[in-house]
Design a protein around this nucleic acid. Structure first.
Lengths: 220, 220
DNA sequence: GTAATATTCATACGTTCGTTTCAAACATAC
DNA sequence: GTATGTTTGAAACGAACGTATGAATATTAC
């Protein structure tokens, strides 16, 4: 029975699985690849995590729970101050995700990429995994945006929130692709700049005039 | 040697593979599942497509090429008229994707979901597959947005385009998740409405004031 | 030290995978 | 008809997968 000083098998497995899930993907990563790279025995996975999906769940919770706690902290602070600014609520939603790398180092970076990947590939991952991980965050932020955008119909608000999540997930999962596409002009190392760009983009999208309203203002 | 009247093995394979890749995902779909569901022999896949990846490529081209042709048609029309409206360029980029279902029926719907899925899961799919499929579209639209938003630095413009693509991909891949999350309030059957929502969201995001510029206007 | 527990190890099981083989069925041309 | 090229069929290949087993080895408790 030990908990404090184990630079241990279990942790080595978690770290390696995290890295592989993030870079290659969950369903194409074999347990043998993980254990051989971590330098541990194959059976150790079933001993510590029972199944492959058990391992995934523990990897996910380890990297996503702190992020969601931070999100709710920031939202709590806003609500305690009665602050229902769209931009600041957006920031509370996006910044903890985008800053995971600098807060949690390599673990944060990998966790973020797993998250982004899984948004589009729930292959082999049951639906309720996501529900459990994000239900509270979704509920709280939906309500906050309801207060921040009272004139916007529920349906439009949810759609726009959906678009924001998509932009975020894509940024988290594959902003390295943008780096290669732009021949290095765009890179994600300057987290501050990415946060500002995404927050301003999302805020503008959320507060856009309704399609019916004749105030687009983007004509040539 | 026949081409015109084959309600054929090859087509049955393509249809079934398309459906399975779209609903379950590429890497977790086995060739045996495809052939058994299509009612054809397992070896037929290797006869007609050589490898599993060859099958994927043909599925992708069959559903994505028409969409990209339509995008470029619409962009051609705009450029021929000297029309560099952000909203209309955005529409040329997004609408052909979102309308694939009604243009190509079930094939369009499945193709769209495969596309959305693969944006986040290039697991087992080499990088140049995407490059080949989208390089021309990316180049043309990047240039068009450069003319439509001349005051925006290249870097910001590419980032915002990246966000737009993320919002689109997420909408294509998993707007059914939004339907269940919103308890049926949001659904994607009304394509017109989804197009308008996403176009207005993306246009607003693309034309947002720069983060440095003090004109956010979303403070409470 | 000894007993009890916790962890690691080598190895194997049963499945399923993508791919291949080669003969049988089919179409077409002469 | 026979010959030729194309498409299907049943069966198997070797490899890799997730998982399970039981003995060996650390670790802890007394």
């Amino acid at each position: 029975m030990k908990d404090s000083p184990p630079p241990d098998t279990k942790e080595k497995i978690l770290d390696t699985a995290e890295k592989e899930f993030a870079t290659r993907g969950y369903s194409v990563t074999s347990l043998r690849k993980i254990t051989s790279e971590a330098g541990v025995n194959l059976a150790a996975i079933n001993y510590h995590f029972n199944t492959k999906q058990g391992l995934l769940m523990e990897v996910l919770h380890r990297c996503i729970d702190p992020m969601n706690r931070r999100r709710l902290e920031m939202l709590d602070a806003l609500e305690a101050a009665g602050d229902y600014s769209v931009e600041r609520i957006v920031r509370a939603l996006l910044e903890p995700a985008l800053r995971m790398k600098e807060r949690y180092g390599v673990h944060g970076e990998y966790g973020i990429r797993i998250l982004g990947k899984l948004h589009g590939e729930p292959a082999g991952v049951p639906h309720e995994v996501f529900t459990d991980l994000f239900h509270l965050v979704f509920t709280r932020f939906t309500a906050a945006f309801g207060k921040a955008l009272p004139e916007l119909p529920d349906e439009d608000r949810l759609w726009r929130l959906h678009f924001v999540i998509g932009a975020m997930a894509h940024t988290l999962a594959s902003s390295d692709k943008l780096e290669s596409l732009s021949c290095g002009l765009c890179n994600a190392v300057d987290t501050d700049a990415v946060v500002e760009r995404l927050v301003s983009f999302a805020s503008a999208g959320l507060t856009a005039p309704l399609p019916g309203t004749a105030a687009g203002g983007s004509g040539s």
